[in-house]
Design a protein around this nucleic acid. Structure first.
Lengths: 150, 150
DNA sequence: GCCAAAGTGTAGCCTCGTCTACAATTGTCA
DNA sequence: TGACAATTGTAGACGAGGCTACACTTTGGC
């Protein structure tokens, strides 16, 4: 490859740092996505059934119980959950706060999708993946849009 | 934990299989996200600069060149790209098709976000993460919404 | 009271995506 | 022409997230 192309081989695309930052953020967002899903699900189970058991969590998420247990360990490591052996999982205050935020965001994303005409089934499905990448700014815009276009 | 709760410990949440399917899909979507980003970027570089070099790709994506090269290998393994040592990267027809699809989807997602009032900067940023989780059904809805609400 | 089934936990393995460090190639310019 | 700087490629490590297989608790029902 020719070295003398002075600064970059691609003059017209957006400045690299911007694009790199964007991709990087999308990558890190994905990293916390799993924990968010777990927190939300645990909160749901606790609220409705009273118990959050690894096997139930695994079944809901479509993974093996071993995987669920491993991720629950990570949740504990990050201070989001507590669990004593053979005793079910609970959320710490931070875990609950996270779950609340996630739940609100999920609802908002689904509502927005429905509002722009996405069928319910697809809205739920896609929201599961989309929600983890919606920034607060965008969330605010969604909420405003829904208020103005009921 | 009590064994005799007949079918499940959580009676009121949506049926497990549905939810598991949703999460599973979100997980696999994320798996192809990287390849999609690479394909799109390579197409951009090829179109504008004429060359797609591993180092440029790495810089744009904000990763080390080693990471880029490894991912390019995967692209080749999956039949999306071709590359000879020290000679730059090119897309196969399938790779180009993928890039086209990804680019169109990206544009549609950004447009939709802008249309509902998301600031340009946030729209671009969030779209980078969101686009990989937007199904064809949802994409169709977006396109219809934009046509009906110009 | 015991016991078998269900749930829980552990170990070991795999792939992906990322990195750093080191080796090899290229191509210009002195 | 040959050396040097940049690019490219390779090796090895690591953590996340997944799985299967195997071991250990718990607990209701007999």
């Amino acid at each position: 490859m020719p070295p003398p192309k002075p600064p970059s081989a691609t003059p017209d695309l957006p400045a690299e740092p911007t694009q790199a930052r964007r991709f990087g953020k999308a990558r890190t967002a994905q990293a916390s996505a799993l924990l968010e899903d777990y927190a939300e699900l645990i909160a749901d189970l606790l609220a409705s059934g009273g118990e959050a058991r690894p096997t139930d969590i695994a079944r809901r998420l479509g993974v093996s119980h071993a995987t669920a247990i491993k991720t629950i360990s990570r949740l504990k490591r990050e201070g989001l959950a507590t669990a004593k052996p053979y005793r079910g999982v609970f959320l710490t205050p931070e875990g609950e706060a996270l779950a609340d935020r996630v739940r609100a965001r999920h609802r908002l994303v689904v509502d927005l999708l429905l509002r722009v005409g996405v069928p319910a089934e697809a809205a739920e499905q896609d929201a599961e993946g989309i929600e983890h990448h919606v920034s607060d700014v965008t969330l605010g815009a969604f909420s405003r849009f829904l208020k103005d276009h009921p």
